[in-house]
Design a protein around this nucleic acid. Sequence first.
DNA 1: ATGTTAAGTGAATAATTATTCATTAATTTT
DNA 2: AAAATTAATGAATAATTATTCACTTAACAT
Lengths: 190, 190
Amino acid sequence: MKPRDDKKIDQVYKATLRLVKAKGLAGITMNEIAKEANIATGTLYIYFKNKKQLINALFMVCRNRSAAVYFKNYVPSMPFKTGLKTIWLNLLNYRVKKFEEAIFIDQCFHSPFITETTKEITRKLFLPLFSLVEAGKKQKLIKNEDTMLLLTFMAGSINETVKHAYYANRKLTKQVIEQMFMMCWDGIKA
Amino acid sequence: MKPRDDKKIDQVYKATLRLVKAKGLAGITMNEIAKEANIATGTLYIYFKNKKQLINALFMVCRNRSAAVYFKNYVPSMPFKTGLKTIWLNLLNYRVKKFEEAIFIDQCFHSPFITETTKEITRKLFLPLFSLVEAGKKQKLIKNEDTMLLLTFMAGSINETVKHAYYANRKLTKQVIEQMFMMCWDGIKA
DNA sequence: ATGTTAAGTGAATAATTATTCATTAATTTT
DNA sequence: AAAATTAATGAATAATTATTCACTTAACAT
C-alpha cells in the first residue's frame, strides 16, 4: 500500500495561512487551497473530512503552537516580573514570526467554522498564564484588577502593535520592544 | 411613483451587523441579510448593486460614524493630556456602545470585500489624531516613538479590553475605565 | 514480478449562494 | 380615477464552490 505523505498536511496548512492572510477567511475556497498547496482538490478530502474540519484542525494547531511557545524559557521560580517579561516576549515573538498564524487565529474567533468546543479546548491552553497573573496580584506586584482584564491589556497592545509594524513595514527593534514592555509593565504594576 | 423607504437601508445595515457579530463575515449570505432585515432578497438589489458594494458601503458608514464620535467634545485649545483623554474615552465608548460595528470593521480589514480605495479613504478620517500625537511629541509630553506605534498601543489595549469585557459579560465601570486610561497614559508619557 | 491496498487525480456532480426578472403593490401625477 | 412610475416580491436562474467518484499511480507485501 501507499503511505500518506506527511508533508501534504503541512503544505495544506501553509497554503491556507497564506491565502487567509491575503484574502481573509471569507475569501478562500477548497479549490484555491488545493492549488496553492500543489495537490489535487480531491486529495484535500483524503486528509480532511471537509472544509470546516480543515479550518478547525488548523486552528487547533496554531493555538497549540502559540501556547507551546509562550512558556519557552519560563521557570516558575523566576521573580514575577522576569517571568512575565519572558512570557510577554514569547507572545510578541510568536506574533511577529508567525504573523500569518496570528491573523488566522484572530479571524477564526468570529467565524462560522470554529465550534464552541474547539474554542473551549484551546482556551484551556492558557490557564498557566492566569496562575502567573494571580500570583502577581497576591504578591501585590500588579494591580488588583480582573485577571483577564490585565491579560487582555497586555495582549491587546502586543497584537495591534505587531499588526501595525507589519503593515507599515517597520521592524520592531530590540529598543522598541524594550520600551513596549516598559509601557505594559508601567500600566499594570501596582 | 413610489418613493424609496429610507428605513430599509438602515434595516439592512443593522441586520448585517447582527449577523456578522453572530457568524462572522464568512458566514453571511444575501438571503439571510434580507430575511433578518424583513425584506425580500430582490429588494436588497434595489438599494445595493451587489454584496461587495453593500459591505463596502456599510464599512464606510461605520468608519465615518466612529471618526465622527472620536472628536466629540474635543477642543484644540485643550491641554494635551485632556484632549488625549477626551479622544481616548470617545474611542472606548464607541467600541462599547457600537460593539457590532467595531467587530464588523475589524473583520473587514482582512476580507475580500473591502477595496484598497475604501481602506485608504477611511484611513484619512483619522489624520487629526495623528496631528494631536505629533503635537504631544513636540511638547515632549509623550515618548518620541513612531506616531502610529503610539496610537496603536492605545487603540490595541482599548480594543482587546472592550472585546474581553463584552465576552466575559463584565461591565466596564467608571473606575475601571479611569484605571485603564491611567495604564495607557503611564505607558506613553515621556 | 505480481497482486493488493491506499493515495492521488481532476472532471463531474451536488450544494449553496448571488443575482435576475416577471409580476404585483404602492405612490404620485395628471 | 386612471395612468405612470418605481418599489417590492420571491421564485427562477446563474454563478460559484464544496464534495464525490471512477480512474490512475505509487508503494508495499507476498
